[in-house]
Each structure stands twice: as structure tokens, then as C-alpha cells.
Design a protein around this nucleic acid. Structure first.
Length: 537
DNA sequence: AATTAGCACAACCGCCTAACT
DNA sequence: AAGTTAGGCGGTTGTGCTAAT
């Protein structure tokens, strides 16, 4: 889209585009020029010509001098951006090629939102261009319920990470594999915990369980991920699903045959070496976007988009999720501590904010190792004792109910300091998490759009999840086709799925014994309990 | 045909940092 | 060393086009 405006348009400047409000626009324009106020808004071709001429004569840099020497009423910053993003002769015009798109995805998986760094890798492309592409693509895929990263890139990223860091050491050698039905899916309704309507939450499915697999042939699995691989080690199959606030938590109301997937300890197997289980972890790997759609704030996706959790953080959390009653899930404090400490250990704020998830993972690993002498929790990468001193009963209560909810809440608080205060000590109640929400009519619309897909309840079936997101056939498309892949059966799911992972812990009898979840967003239910616990913290 | 929603993109804003004085 | 400035960067907003309703 061209930013050019007609010359006449150029003379009619929006009041918003100039620094002197409250005056007639035309007079403002005149005053602006006369007073030396700087113009904002779209550039005209005349302005472009002036700028190009200036740069040709004086070279780049010293942008604040442009106004002096050229008579261009633009601030230096604006001139620099205009030149860098549009006028530079070496700019490549036109849409991204598929190769470029894939490269961007790869780079984002590695770098996070480091647009400028990514632009260096893509000659002729600007950071702004890449950023816009990414945000648009992410938004589109979010809307379609598709994961952001293709599995191969996730794998590649994780492989890179593990090879360089050699530290993804989920301690599974001592793990106890839970019985398939260890996590009976609880029934609950949640009223207050409206975390995020589009949080990509990984689901970990124990494919060996079989009961909830409608795909015994493994046809829904990518090549090499067939039932053999699954059965081999209670293969954990993390699912990414689009979580919407309006979706109710567990809709598995089918009784004992529909268990929440267990999380096995086979995670740890050979993260370097191509064990198929790596895939499951890898699927978390590129998880900036699993969690962070990173779309415009104007979207009703708020906190999750800002979270930018590290690539493997979800795997971390899921590692925790596999906790048995003997390996309690991390407390809110532990997660907070993890996040906070991870920001303290050799990370700058920009690192943390960058979406460079591996960095946080690295720190989490370090933390774990540093704590390992005290903690033999067999599979949790977020050892409970990361918690400082908060192993109170309240924590136990909370942990047994919703450690991942903690994670979510903690992350939220971490990234929204205005709400959280000191995130360690001042855990706001889940209820207090004010998330921009989609209007109900929008929700209904979205549901209506799913009418060519499995019904709502089916989305929540692990098998349906299997068929949908993980191995979409169209990963790199930037066009609308991306939303119509073979795997675009969006997993419309619960907005608080991370909690759900923990609710599945059958030690939570007070939850799992609850009546079936009715699947109405906003209906009253167990969130009251959770919120109360949070408030009491 | 009019309205609305979605999309893509340009541009701006605020923060940060390095260079300079 | 402290203050100032320019430039860089990432996030956000505004705008025009298009497709859908």
C-alpha cells in the first residue's frame, strides 16, 4: 500500500497529525509550516523527492539536518524511517517470496521479535516489513487456530538449542510413567479465570492411551509419528490449540474413557538425537507464537500476546504438568521466581521482551540444575523448590488445583507490572486478571464459522486435536490459503487450558469429581474456588 | 448498494543506547 | 562523570483497500 497521498490531501492534515491541536486544519497547516512545526502523516511524492535528493547529496545520517538543508518539514526520525523503509535504492519491493517467508519463520523461531536482526538476514527487506508480515501472519493463524511454527522449524530450533546448550535435561530416567488414566479429565466450570482467548496451549497427549485416539492408524500423525512411535514410550504428544476465553474448560464429559492425556517422562529422551519424542517437545519449541500472537494491541488478545514466553517454556511447564502427586506441580511462586530469576541471570530486559524464548528456558534449566540437589522431582523442569519459602498450604492447595494456572497468572503478572506489583509477593487473583475479551457475539460468530468442522466438543477431544494443528500441510503461506489447510480444524478450546493440564491431576479430587463441565463460557463454577484461593494468597 | 469486518501496510510513539559534548 | 542528542528498535495506531454480508 502506498503511503502516498495526493498533494491536495497533503495540505489537509489531520489535527492528529500535527502538534497544534484545536485549530482549523488548513490554518494549522499554514501555521505549521510557518512556525516550523513538523509534519506528520503519509509522505507525499514531493517530500520523497526532496528526501532522496538530500540523501543523494549529503548521504545518509544526520537526519535532523534534513529539515534545515532541504526545507522538508519532517523530523529527522521520520526522514530516517522513510528513507530506510521506502526510499533506499536497495529495497526489495513486492511480497515476500515463499523462501523469504520460511526464512522469517525460522528467524523468528530463533530470535523472537528481533526485527532488525531478522532484516539483516533478509537483504532488501526492512524490519518494519518483516514485523508487519509476522504480525499479520500470526494474527491470521491465530484466528484460524493454527500454530505459528511448523513442526520442522520447531524441531530445528530445538535441535539447535539443545546442541548448543546441551541442557534440556528432563529427568526422566527416574520418571514414573503414569497410567493412562492417571489424569482423568475433570469437569469444571470456570467463571472468573478468563485468561486469554487465544492462548496457544500445548496439549500433551498420551497416545498410547488409545482410548481417545480416533486415529489408530496414526494417519493424523506426520510421517514417523505413527502409533509405533507413540506406543513405544507412552509418547507424549503436545497439542497446540487455540484457547479461547469463551470455551469452557474440559469438555471431556465422556467419563473414564476420555482421559486427559498424561504426560510421560519420555520427554527427556535424546533431545539431540532424533527420538521421536523430541518432536513433542519441539512442538513447544518455537513457542513465542504459541503463546504470543504478538498482534496489535488493538486485538482483544492482550496479555498473552505480550508474554512472549521462551520457546521451550511451555515444554517446561508441561514437564511440570506431568507431575504425579509425588511430584507436585510448581507453585505460582516457583513460576514467578523462575521468570524473574531468568530475567536476572544474564538477561537484559530487551532479551526478556524479545520473545527469545530460549533464553528463559536456559535460565530455567540453570535454575533447575542449581536446585537439583534438593529436588528429585522426576520430571518437573520447574522444580517446586524453586519457590523461595512459600511452600505453604495455600500453595499446596493452589498447586494441586492449577499450577499452570499459576504459570499463566504469573506470566501475566510478570508482563503486566501495572497489575501485578511485585509479582512474587502480590499475586493477584486470577479473577483480577483483566483480559480484553472478545464480545460474545464475536465468540458466537467464531463458533458459527466452525460449522464445517467438528463440533465444539469434538475440538476438545485429543484426537481431534491431533488431526488439526500440529502437522498442517500449509505452514508458510501468507495468503488466506493458510487458513484452509488440511489441518485447519481449529481447536477451539478452553481459555484456561493450562489450568486444565493440572486439573487433570487426579489428586485434585475436589475438582475432578466435580460435575461435568457444561461448556458454557462464563458459567459459574470452580473458578470461584480458584479465585478465592488466589485472593487468599 | 451500503455497511461491516478483515487485512495489509505505513507511520508514529516511546524507550533505550551509544556517541558526543 | 553527567547531560544531551541522534539513531535504532519494537510496539502500536491509523488508514485505505477488499471481501463478505
Amino acid at each position: 500500500m502506498s503511503s502516498m497521498t495526493s498533494e491536495s490531501e497533503d495540505m489537509i492534515m489531520s489535527r492528529d497529525c500535527i502538534s497544534s491541536p484545536g485549530i482549523d486544519e488548513m490554518s494549522v497547516e499554514r501555521n505549521m509550516v510557518g512556525n516550523g512545526a513538523l509534519k506528520k502523516g503519509p509522505w507525499t511524492s514531493a517530500e520523497d523527492a526532496i528526501l532522496v535528493d538530500y540523501v543523494n547529496k549529503h548521504g545518509e545520517g544526520n537526519w535532523n539536518a534534513v529539515q534545515k538543508h532541504s526545507g522538508l518539514y519532517r523530523c529527522g526520525k521520520s526522514c530516517r524511517l522513510r528513507w530506510a523503509n521506502h526510499l533506499r535504492p536497495d529495497l526489495k519491493k513486492g511480497a515476500f517470496t515463499p523462501e523469504e517467508e520460511r526464512r522469517i519463520i525460522e528467524l523468528h523461531a530463533k530470535m523472537g521479535n528481533k526485527w532488525a536482526r531478522m532484516a539483516v538476514e533478509l537483504p532488501g527487506r526492512t524490519d518494519n516489513e518483516i514485523k508487519n508480515f509476522w504480525n499479520t501472519r500470526t494474527k491470521r493463524r491465530q484466528r484460524a487456530g493454527l500454530p505459528i511454527y511448523p513442526p520442522d522449524i520447531c524441531l530445528q530450533t530445538l535441535s539447535d538449542n539443545t546442541q548448543t546448550q546441551n541442557m534440556v535435561t528432563f529427568d526422566v530416567s527416574h520418571g514414573e510413567t503414569l497410567p493412562n488414566n492417571a489424569f482423568q479429565f475433570p469437569a469444571a466450570e470456570f467463571k472468573h479465570l478468563e485468561l486469554n482467548h487465544e492462548l496457544y496451549a500445548p496439549h500433551i497427549l498420551d497416545l498410547s492411551g488409545g482410548n481417545f485416539l480416533d486415529d489408530p492408524e496414526g494417519s493424523l500423525l506426520p510421517h514417523g509419528l505413527g502409533p509405533t512411535a507413540c506406543n513405544n514410550t507412552n509418547f507424549l504428544f503436545p497439542m497446540l490449540k487455540r484457547v479461547r476465553r469463551f470455551d469452557t474448560f474440559p469438555l471431556f464429559d465422556g467419563g473414564p474413557d476420555e482421559y486427559f492425556p498424561t504426560v510421560d517422562h519420555s520427554y527427556s529422551q535424546n533431545m539431540n538425537g532424533g527420538d521421536i519424542l523430541s518432536s513433542s517437545s519441539c512442538l513447544f519449541s518455537g513457542s513465542h507464537a504459541y503463546i504470543n500472537g504478538n498482534t496489535s494491541s488493538s486485538e482483544p488478545i492482550s496479555w498473552a500476546q505480550k508474554m512472549e514466553l521462551p520457546s521451550l517454556q511451555y515444554s517446561t511447564q508441561m514437564g511440570s504438568c506431568n507431575a504425579t502427586p509425588s511430584s507436585p506441580l510448581p507453585s505460582l511462586e516457583s513460576v514467578d521466581t523462575l521468570i524473574q530469576q531468568s530475567t536476572l541471570i544474564g538477561q537484559t530486559k530487551s532479551d526478556r521482551d524479545s520473545g527469545l524464548l530460549e533464553a528463559v528456558l536456559l535460565q530455567s534449566q540453570n535454575l533447575k540444575m542449581s536446585k537439583s540437589s534438593n529436588n528429585h522431582s522426576n520430571a518437573s523442569i520447574l522444580p517446586r523448590d524453586i519457590t523461595t519459602d512459600s511452600s505453604s498450604q495455600r500453595d499446596d492447595d493452589w498447586d494441586s488445583m492449577s499450577p499452570l494456572g499459576h504459570s499463566a497468572a504469573s506470566v501475566y503478572s510478570e508482563y503486566t507490572p501495572h497489575l501485578s506489583g511485585s509479582s512474587v509477593d502480590e499475586h493477584q487473583s486470577v479473577e483480577a486478571i483483566s483480559v480484553k475479551q472478545e464480545p460474545e457475539e464475536y465468540v458466537a460468530k467464531q463458533l458459527d464459522r466452525e460449522d464445517d468442522k467438528p463440533n465444539h466438543t469434538n475440538y476438545l477431544r485429543p484426537d481431534s486435536l491431533l488431526g488439526s494443528n500440529l502437522f498442517g500441510s500449509y505452514w508458510y503461506g501468507s495468503g488466506s490459503n493458510a487458513e484452509h489447510s488440511n489441518y485447519d480444524h481449529c481447536m477451539v478450546s478452553d481459555p484456561i487450558h493450562p489450568l486444565g493440564e493440572d486439573f487433570c491431576n487426579d489428586s485434585n479430587k475436589h475438582i475432578s469429581d466435580s460435575p461435568p463441565f457444561h461448556g458454557h463460557y462464563g458459567s459459574a463454577g470452580r473458578w470461584d474456588d480458584i479465585s478465592e484461593i488466589c485472593r487468599n494468597r
